[in-house]
Write a protein that binds this DNA or RNA. Structure first.
Length: 202
DNA sequence: ATCAAGATTACCT
DNA sequence: GGTAATCTTGATA
């Protein structure tokens, strides 16, 4: 599958307030170039993080070397390493110095599935059970799409990692609390496609 | 210099 | 349901 490059999301999409971006991302297609082809997958689950009053955000206590990308204007990729094992990828949103981002928690794989399987399981063949398990979590999708430290700060209006629209909007969007955090747990800032099999946790 | 915690996952019972 | 894995970062001294 070749993504429609004419529908790549531009700067003015990402510079919107973080919750506006978070609610619009589900249904859009996340793309990472691999040589002459593309890993693609539909975004099915995200979480918003807002450094101004959200204690769970990495930017809540101000700028550090680790989180500086999150203080850029919207439209850059913030990648961090966690638990000594996994990478997680976020879309920076809003204005410069706001420190806001949306964590991409799960996608529905659409192309280069064999390569994703190779990255995840060490073999290009995968069972139907493994298909569901390919990219249904923030660490898993980074592994599947080869997103790592060097991608921190990537410009999402460039040619290597970006998001395209394809007018997929016919679904229910669930709004609920976030997963895997201990602070600001009450904020209903997790959004996912109701009937998707590829959501990390219902 | 030391240390605790972490926006997770895989594997165990 | 419980927990080990594994290492970077940021805070404190």
């Amino acid at each position: 599958m070749v993504p429609d490059l004419t529908r790549k999301l531009q700067r003015n999409f990402y510079t919107q307030p973080v919750l506006d971006v978070a609610k619009q991302l589900p249904g859009k297609i996340f793309v990472k170039r691999k040589g002459d082809s593309f890993y693609t997958g539909r975004i099915v689950e995200v979480e918003a993080y807002d450094g101004s009053y959200d204690e769970a955000a990495h930017t809540f206590n101000g700028k550090t070397k680790r989180n500086e990308v999150m203080f850029k204007e919207g439209g850059y990729l913030y990648v961090y390493f966690t638990y000594g094992v996994h990478y997680c990828c976020n879309v920076v949103t809003g204005k410069k110095n706001e420190g806001n981002a949306v964590l991409i928690r799960a996608i529905e794989p659409m192309s280069l599935l064999e390569d994703m399987s190779g990255n995840r399981f060490g073999t290009n063949n995968f069972s139907s059970k493994q298909l569901i398990n390919l990219t249904n979590g923030p660490g898993k999708l980074c592994k599947a799409l080869e997103i790592e430290r060097k991608h921190n700060g990537y410009n999402l209006t460039g040619d290597d990692i970006f998001i395209v629209d394809d007018d997929y909007t016919d679904f229910g969007l669930v709004e609920t609390t976030r997963i895997g955090i201990n602070k600001s747990v009450e904020l209903p800032w997790r959004f996912y496609i109701k009937d998707s099999k590829y959501v990390s946790k219902k």
